[in-house]
């Protein structure tokens, strides 16, 4: 999988690159409009992360040009602007998703995987890990071909964890992803602990090859046993 990161802020770009490389993607970068344009013209990417505010031009214009030439690469817009119009305009112009800065790396990961899964319906409809297989469209979990019933929240949590295998998921990232992103005051995320506990128990009872591990007060990660 090849991913192009178009972002002018060097530090942010490097963070994203590091995170993506952990997922075994081939990552390339561009830090201004025309550099990005050149790369898009000459190579094919599975996903493009596009910042709107770029030196020498606007990311939305780049997207427009891209789509005009028939390029169908997946595009996720990354913007500091949370204006609804920008979001709608971006999606209108053919972006596949829109992510507002600042974001959790786990969220970026999940978004990229969701976009990739949507575009390439071949085989990516399931996420598997060891003896565990998650059917995303059917919202089903099979462990050793045995169906394990999950409630809606548990499924969403597991899905998020599987998208971010071996990666850190902070409590906030998980809460925002599963319980909605209008989190303004619910700083007490202990409530997600009980959901995690239930999920862990189900995985354990079914003898799954994965387990959810707590990372000292920061959050969780899913690892293969």
């Amino acid at each position: 999988m090849k991913i192009l990161v178009i972002e002018d802020e060097k530090d942010l770009q490097q963070n994203i690159v590091q995170s993506l490389e952990k997922e075994q993607y081939i990552v390339e970068t561009a830090d201004h409009f025309w550099a990005a344009y050149d790369k898009i013209e000459n190579y094919k990417y599975d996903c493009i992360l596009l910042d709107i505010m770029l030196p020498q031009g606007n990311g939305l214009d780049l997207l427009k040009m891209l789509r005009k030439t028939g390029n169908t690469d997946n595009v996720i817009i990354i913007s500091a602007k949370n204006a609804l119009e920008d979001k709608l305009k971006g999606l209108d112009l053919g972006a596949d998703d829109y992510l507002t800065k600042p974001f959790h790396l786990a969220e970026l990961n999940a978004r990229i995987k969701a976009v990739l899964r949507r575009k390439n319906a071949d085989g990516l409809n399931t996420i598997s890990s060891g003896n565990l297989a998650l059917y995303i469209s059917e919202r089903k979990l099979l462990i050793d071909s045995q169906e394990i019933p999950l409630n809606r929240k548990e499924f969403d949590i597991l899905n998020y964890f599987l998208f971010n295998k071996n990666r850190l998921i902070t409590k906030t990232a998980l809460a925002e992803h599963v319980w909605g992103d209008n989190i303004d005051q619910a700083d007490n995320f202990d409530f997600i602990y009980s959901q995690i506990k239930n999920l862990r128990k189900k995985l354990q009872n079914a003898d799954a090859d994965v387990e959810i591990e707590a990372i000292y007060g920061v959050g969780y990660r899913l690892i293969e046993k």
Binding site: D11, L12, N15, Q18, S19, P102, F103, H104, A106, L168
Partner: peptide, 9 residues
């Protein structure tokens, strides 16, 4: 965003 992601990494 930079601080948050750096800390996560």
């Amino acid at each position: 965003a930079i601080i948050l992601n750096k800390l996560e990494l």
